[in-house]
Nucleic acid binder design. Structure first.
Length: 474
RNA sequence: GCGCCCAUCGUCUAGCGGUCUAGGACGUCGCCCUUUCACGGCGAAAACAGGGGUUCGAGUCCCCUUGGGCGCGCCA
């Protein structure tokens, strides 16, 4: 089986495209086949190198590897033209001299008569006639159109949509070659998929009608039609196709939001595909379990809350060492992450690793993880957030002042030793543990939330911890 | 306008004619655990769009209505 992912580089790799790529990848891996990557850059106006780089970067981050060289569609224009010429030669295509204005009128008329706005095929049989000579004399440049069947229907056997029938009268003679001789998308896709040996096309269901039209091209060339699978688009919270206004961001944005690739893969796969009640699929499980006939036909809405929850579960399930590695790798992409990354040395790494167990339990994303780890990077004197300020009332400061010499007297700076100090203090004074622990937390982290406070004390080290306590007690 | 697709809790979904007083997950709300926040545990509220059929029996099959989506370029 050969699948392919064929994005047009007019923007970043958006989340819907990523899911399409994921499905192609999953199936190819499962079948021991190949997934090819083709960049559909025939729109010279809108295609950019930056977009190509973003797509490739996004796929790499998501771990969606493709086989063989990346194909650039524009580079194959000569071949596309050659196929159009062949179709012209065998009478499967014809030249059309209709002007933009004529086309406009045709569409208006069709609409008025309750028909789909289509080209009427007026140049179908005019090749070599006086009409063509006249058009040429006027200096008109023709487009090449497919001579599509007008009777009967075209049937698509779709792995997701099932059998879908289109009356041929509703499918017009699509343009193969523009008047400037460049190939259109319709022609290019078919030629490329054929030449690349693609056997299974998985793409968004916005292409479903294109499948029928493209089938006509395959048939005209006598080529085998690949299997189709048109998957529903991802929708935003309002049920409309996910677009920029919903924050349909590039996958790089999801990296910056601190999601793990494996969690995102799992979430994306489960969106519109299911196997019973099961929610969690590791990537190997996904490869094994994925199946097109369990892909739903109805579109699903993208839900950040569920993604976050899933991501949190993945983080917690990841070992401290592995999560640290991912964290450090991702840090430069996180908001303000570069500044933090610059401060990471062996000491910081060790502190992070030591804190990871407590940190990851409190974070649903790497951004939250970075936020939680902030106390390791903060410089004295700390700035306190609202919660910490609230905690550091006079009586809290009194506790800190009383505790400071007891900590200072410690010879053994460990979580256990400091905890013992605090417990003894609590027992003596009759204070509640929380009345002491919370001020410590505020003093040491500047927050109302952190990993276990005794772990924090140990990780920070004697000097830094005592300094922060003194700062807060003042 | 025309064509195609879709329709179970707010969201993702299970359900493939009787096991459905409709199950799970996220989210929401309670309670418990607890040094905070989390995590974890327990529990609650929450859905078969409507109407006709078919059938002994329909969330499950058919039709219509309604609602939503996608498509209809010398864009891809």
């Amino acid at each position: 089986m050969i699948t392919r992912f064929a994005p047009s580089p007019t923007g970043y790799l958006h989340i819907g495209g990523a899911r399409t790529a994921l499905f192609n990848w999953l199936l190819a891996r499962q079948q021991g086949g190949k997934m090819l990557l083709r960049i559909e850059d025939t729109d010279r106006e809108r295609s950019t190198d930056a977009a190509i780089a973003a797509i490739i970067d996004g796929m790499q981050w998501l771990g969606l590897t493709w086989d063989g060289d990346t194909i650039y569609q524009f580079a194959r224009a000569g071949r596309h033209r050659e196929v159009a010429e062949a179709m012209l030669a065998k009478g499967a295509a014809y030249k059309c001299y209709a002007s933009a204005q004529e086309l406009e009128e045709m569409r208006d008329l069709a609409r008025k008569e309750g028909r789909p706005p289509r080209y009427d095929g007026r140049w179908r049989e005019l090749g070599g006639t006086q009409a063509e000579a006249d058009a040429l004399a006027e200096g008109r440049k023709p487009v090449v159109r497919l001579k599509a069947p007008r009777e009967g229907e075209t049937v698509i056997q779709d792995k997701v949509q099932g059998e879908v029938r289109f009356p041929n009268k509703d499918l017009d003679d699509l343009i193969l070659l523009r008047s400037d001789g460049t190939p259109t998308y319709m022609l290019a896709v078919v030629v490329d998929d054929h030449d690349m040996g693609v056997t299974q096309i998985i793409r968004g269901d916005d292409h479903l009608t294109n499948a029928a039209r493209q089938t006509h091209i395959y048939q005209a060339m006598g080529w085998e039609v690949p299997a189709f699978a048109h998957i529903p688009l991802i929708h935003g919270p309002d049920g409309a196709k996910l677009s920029k206004r919903h924050g349909a961001l590039g996958v790089d944005a999801y990296r910056a939001m601190g999601y793990l690739p494996e969690a995102l893969r799992n979430y994306l796969a489960r969106l519109g595909w299911s196997q019973g009640d099961r929610e969690f699929f590791s990537t190997p499980d996904l490869i094994e379990a994925f199946s097109l006939d369990q892909v739903h036909r109805s579109p699903a809405r993208f839900d950040y809350a569920k993604l976050e929850n899933m991501n949190g579960q993945y983080m917690r399930a990841t070992s401290d060492e592995a999560l640290l590695a991912i964290f450090l790798e991702t840090l430069p992409y996180l908001p303000n992450g570069e500044a933090l990354a610059a401060q990471v040395d062996e000491t910081k790494k060790a502190q992070l690793l030591r804190s990871m167990a407590g940190l990851k339990e409190r974070a649903k994303t790497l951004v939250e993880l970075a936020d939680g780890a902030n106390f390791l990077f903060a410089q004295r004197p700390l700035s306190y957030d609202a919660k910490a300020t609230e905690i550091l009332k006079p009586e809290a400061k009194a506790h800190l002042a009383a505790l400071a010499p007891r900590f200072a007297a410690l010879t053994d700076w460990t979580a256990a030793a400091t905890e013992e100090v605090v417990r003894a203090y609590v027992a003596e004074t009759g204070a509640k543990l929380g009345q002491v622990a919370q001020p410590l937390r505020a003093a040491l982290t500047g927050r109302g939330t952190s990993p276990g406070i005794f772990d924090v004390i140990e990780v920070l080290g004697r000097e830094e911890a005592l300094g922060r306590i003194a700062d807060a007690a003042a």
